[in-house]
């Protein structure tokens, strides 16, 4: 009985995790609409304020937020996602520190000129250091060698 219960718990968690990861990947890939683009996942290991920062970045590289035009305020984010305003501010502050957003006095947050390029450069680095790493690990697990991998990438058709 106990074992059965535990098995169920582990299975549940596992399924949930898989679903969330998938969900995250989907939401990262298909950001097209303003307010739908940011999906906050409580299940993710990524802190909420980082998710907020990433959501804003996504909206910048997808052209929903435009350089030298206004970005979301702390209160807009807090209201929209029903999260503590301090958490929202923390997310915004990361981007201010990185120079992606800046504050115009009396007018609120704005997207810096060149923000899109800066985000893409940063993401590329993460892509190389983390995403490819995970990708290669998984390939190793499945015994896919480099040659086969290259063939798969070549054959991969962009939609």
């Amino acid at each position: 009985m106990v074992l059965e219960y535990k098995a169920q718990v582990i299975l549940d968690r596992f399924m949930k995790r898989r679903y969330t990861t998938l969900h995250e990947q989907c939401s990262n890939a298909t950001n097209t609409m303003g307010s739908d683009s940011m999906i906050i996942s409580m299940e993710s290991t990524v802190p909420i304020y980082i998710q907020i920062a990433q959501g804003i970045e996504n909206d910048i590289i997808n052209g929903i937020l435009i350089e030298n035009e206004s970005a979301y305020s702390q209160y807009q984010i807090s209201r929209e996602y029903q999260i503590n305003p301090a958490t929202a501010a923390k997310g915004i502050n990361i981007l201010v520190q990185e120079g992606i957003l800046f504050k115009k006095r009396g007018l609120g947050m704005f997207v810096s000129i060149g923000a899109g390029g800066a985000i893409k450069r940063k993401r590329k680095e993460i892509f190389f250091n983390t995403t490819i790493d995970n990708f290669m690990q998984e390939a190793k697990k499945l015994s896919i060698d480099k040659k086969e991998l290259k063939r798969m990438i070549d054959e991969y058709e962009e939609e």
């Binding site: 409580m42 909420i48 807090s78 999260i83 503590n84 301090a86 958490t87």
Partner: peptide, 30 residues
């Protein structure tokens, strides 16, 4: 939760909530 959060934003103050539904309230909390 929504009403509380909005009113808090308009009128910041110290709010202490005890609850056993942590999964529901954590997103409101600092």
């Amino acid at each position: 939760y929504n009403i509380l959060l909005r009113d808090y934003m308009n009128h910041p103050r110290t709010i202490i909530i005890s609850s056993h539904l942590l999964n529901e309230i954590e997103i409101l909390l600092e």
